[in-house]
């Protein structure tokens, strides 16, 4: 089974180091949870895996390792090549693309991801086939078909944006999905719906990294491993009970147990306070 393998990852944004040596390994079919206080570097990890140009990998590796041991260097790929290699990031704050219908955007996206060798300008997936599949997926996710006619994230509510991200996840069926706070800004019912949807979409073929502050999203997606990030490092990993503990009791025990990481967290907060927001606009924390 293919694995996404991250080793010793250091990432800087505008010269400031955010990730200070992250090791993480996710196999297809596995669900992992990534928790941690605000500013600990969770979203940075997601952007770095996807290849956001503002997130500079200063050292470490990200590789896709096939069952036969064949390795593909993710860091050498453009973001779109990563998507075509089967990596997906559900954005915490997705971007609006006014004037472009969600259905048209997705048709482009699905065509490219399913035909990684497609050259620009070559035929898109046949309209009829695409529409049928989109309609079926939207029905499965209890979404109004009119939703796909709206412009991508343009004037969407927070909840609608997250639903649109889940729809894209369902259509693209990536090998590895990073869900960056897909529950933020949603009420309890919406989180439950999102949790159920993700469980429906996932399966033996998909590795999922759920970045969250809460355990509700994990209700239908019980993680094999829960990782805690603090000060730009994964300091502790455990089972589902760890997520429950962090949700109930917060991060005080973790900070006390890992004073170096806690110090790094404080230093990053101070630097961010001096420099203003250290991360690019729209990129999340």
């Amino acid at each position: 089974m293919e694995r996404l393998v991250i080793r010793g990852l250091h990432v800087a944004v505008e010269g400031q180091e955010i990730l200070k040596g992250v090791d993480l390994e996710i196999g297809r079919g596995e669900v992992h949870a990534l928790m941690g206080p605000n500013g600990s570097g969770k979203s940075t990890l997601g952007y770095a895996i996807m290849g956001h140009p503002a997130y500079e990998v200063t050292s470490g590796t990200i590789e896709l390792v096939a069952a036969d041991g064949t390795r593909r260097d993710v860091l050498a790929m453009e973001p779109d090549e990563r998507a075509r290699a089967g990596i997906f990031l559900a954005f915490q704050r997705p971007m609006a693309i006014p004037g472009v219908r969600l259905a048209d955007f997705l048709r482009h996206s699905v065509t490219n991801v399913r035909n990684p060798d497609r050259k620009e300008g070559e035929e898109l997936m046949p309209m009829r086939e695409f529409r049928a599949e989109l309609k079926a997926k939207m029905a499965e996710l209890s979404m109004d078909p009119d939703f796909a006619r709206r412009y991508v994230n343009d004037g969407f509510s927070g909840g609608e944006m997250k639903r649109a991200e889940i729809l894209q996840l369902a259509m693209l069926r990536p090998g590895f999905a990073i869900l960056d706070e897909t529950d933020s800004g949603l009420d309890a019912d919406a989180v439950r719906l999102a949790s159920e949807s993700i469980a429906k979409i996932g399966g033996a073929e998909m590795g999922i990294l759920i970045i969250t502050h809460h355990e509700q999203l994990l209700e239908h997606n019980v993680p094999l491993r829960t990782h805690v990030m603090l000060g730009g490092r994964i300091v502790e990993s455990g089972g589902p009970e760890l997520a429950a503990e962090l949700h109930k009791k917060g991060y005080e025990r973790i900070r006390a147990a890992y004073p170096d990481a806690a110090a790094a967290e404080r230093a990053m907060e101070d630097a961010a306070g001096v420099a203003g927001r250290a991360v690019p606009a729209g990129a999340g924390a």
Binding site: G51, H52, E78, A83, M95, I97, H108, L172, A283
Partner: peptide, 27 residues
């Protein structure tokens, strides 16, 4: 950020830019 978002969904930077421009004219 729009270009990166579209790239993250498998569109090349050029395709993404074309799409953003097409969207601009759509109105």
């Amino acid at each position: 950020q729009q270009v990166f978002y579209a790239q993250a969904r498998g569109l090349t930077a050029d395709e993404a830019a074309r799409l953003v421009v097409a969207g601009f004219f759509q109105q």
